[in-house]
Design a binder for these strands. Structure first.
Lengths: 209, 209
DNA sequence: AAATATTTGTTGCATTTGCAACATTTTACA
DNA sequence: TGTAAAATGTTGCAAATGCAACAAATATTT
């Protein structure tokens, strides 16, 4: 995962942040932070901690749009607020740096040495963003819960070629991510165990095929 | 929708393309173009025409990842090929310009006047990409076909505040986009008509609420 | 450490959905 | 323009899934 300031030394990061008029804010846990942000286009970088973007529709149903962790970005370039009621809640103590979108191409910054690296990082980061959205769409378009789970498991093991892995979230969150009913998902996981596809130990899953 | 070369005059577009070592290729209809592209990271811009990204899983099921039209971009920054078999098929006669990702920050280009505008356009375009993915995810995470349809209809009318609109694709493609069975979707549309929610005339739909 | 909240697992039941197999209409193209 | 191909509409049926209502196990907080 790319970090917005990777390959830039600390001194230059500070310089960039100053020229970008970056604004760093600290939050406690469970704070709704979007209500504090001015509505202009911005990029937010999570320095430490994590947040969750949640939308609430007219029926009051909450839906997790995105989980955002350390080093990741979010903001108006990466999602539109539509008509929906989107809130952003810190999941723990969190530090966030805000950059106004329009500052990314201000007169001073384009003369800065590390600017090119910064832009490269930003473009790469946005690309990774699209890629992770595509992954979720791939999962969401699977027809059955079983197919969603098996594909999710496959993705978890494909990089490491390992047959055992630990899911990086709770089963409740996984059900949300896959957009299935949690209890129905648990049921399907039981069937997968019965059918000899997997073995589980808490959130640790071993593929038997 | 942003165009990668918007706000740049033709002369400068040519200059940029030259410095970016852009490569323009013409294709006939129904050609699999990804097989002709070298595997290095690239951005592809559709000058004219349109293409469809299709993945085929191990079962032979085809799934439309994305429809890409005039002025839009695709390529290795915006999706990863994973382990899947992704092919890119032209839907009509199509002209595509390829840019190597690494050229975006080459030594010569960063001295070019229109570079900043180009970068701005690229970042905006990538943001719009993420945004459209988010929209689809929002739809895919709705629980029932009815909810998916009603939300899709709402999104179609929200900008124009009109109650009537024409869906920009076939019902077959819409079913794919929403990841539901086509015939079941048709059935649900019938129910929506029965229940007085909508009125249809081909692909022209009027909301009655 | 006790109390509270959250997560996980289970299951009956009703609803929703995919699937299959059509007929019909519309569109593409040779 | 005629023919083939694609899109649309319909419906019975079986399978998958959401929902509800729990109990039990973990985690978190005070």
């Amino acid at each position: 995962m790319t970090n917005l300031f990777q390959n830039i030394n600390d001194k230059n990061i500070e310089k960039l942040k100053r020229i970008l008029k970056a604004n760093t804010v600290h939050y406690q846990k469970n704070v709704n932070i979007l209500s504090n942000v001015n509505p202009e286009d911005f990029i937010a970088i999570i320095d430490t901690g994590s947040v969750q973007l949640i939308s609430t529709d007219y029926d009051g149903n909450e839906r997790i749009i995105e989980d955002i962790g350390e080093g990741e970005i979010f903001g108006s370039i990466s999602y539109s607020l539509n008509n929906e009621d989107v809130s952003c809640i810190t999941k723990e103590k969190t530090q966030i740096t805000y950059i106004q979108y329009k500052q990314i191409t201000n007169d001073e910054i384009i003369k800065t040495d590390s600017y090119i690296i910064f832009i490269k990082n930003l473009i790469k980061l946005l690309g990774e963003h699209v890629s992770s959205k595509n992954t979720r769409i791939e999962l969401l378009t699977k027809k059955t819960t079983r197919d969603k789970l098996l594909e999710y498991f496959r993705l978890q093991t494909q990089t490491a070629t390992k047959k055992t892995f630990t899911i990086p979230m709770s089963y409740t969150e996984l059900a949300n991510y896959l957009a299935v009913d949690r209890s129905a998902m648990t049921r399907e996981i039981s069937y997968l165990k019965e059918d000899g596809f997997i073995k589980t130990n808490g959130r640790r899953i071993t593929l038997l095929y």
